[in-house]
Nucleic acid binder design. Sequence first.
DNA 1: GGATCGTGCAACTTTTTGGTTGCGCGTTTC
DNA 2: GAAACGCGCAACCAAAAAGTTGCACGATCC
Lengths: 97, 97
Amino acid sequence: MFAALGDVTRLGLVGQLSAAKARSISALAAETRLTRQAVTKHLKVLQQVGLVRPQRVGREQLYVLQPEILAEAEGYLRAVSASWDDALARLQTYLEG
Amino acid sequence: MFAALGDVTRLGLVGQLSAAKARSISALAAETRLTRQAVTKHLKVLQQVGLVRPQRVGREQLYVLQPEILAEAEGYLRAVSASWDDALARLQTYLEG
DNA sequence: GGATCGTGCAACTTTTTGGTTGCGCGTTTC
DNA sequence: GAAACGCGCAACCAAAAAGTTGCACGATCC
């Protein structure tokens, strides 16, 4: 999940998709300096982690963002922060004791 | 930032550091199957994005987690979710209109 | 029905990255 | 002060990932 978002190009694609309802591969590729095939590969990666969902419309393949998945990552970050706060509290106690 | 967390080993190191106050490179390496130098490299990466801060103590180099930085990533995810909700609302309106 | 558009698939090249090995240097410890 | 410990640096290796090119195929437009 983080690995999927860790690529600048993919993060850009997520950005594009977060601003639009749905976009075709060519439309997405048009806003980058990459080939259409490169964009296709990145979309496959995003799809594998569930961040994005393809949807065929005529001869176009539209991609839609699945923001529910983002909540997972958000939750993890919060958990790490929390457990670190615990550790910090223990450290505090230790230093004061 | 996401790229830094995107590696399994680095995410593991963050996990270790979130559970302890501070840990030396060797101590961190001892809990993985990796060399000390490999761990050193990963810590450098984490340090570059500000997730971790080194602190020299005698001949040991301790590393401490900087959880404030995690809030940035958390905020970004929330923002993307939000703007997508907007897009979804517009799509809804479009379809109903 | 022929041209065009959007796409999928496969092979290939290039770059990045994760990992190791080897050595030297400051800090302890006895 | 010599041995041991914890590190840092640099060179090197291998595997994975990013990107391109070339071709074929269904959908659309005229």
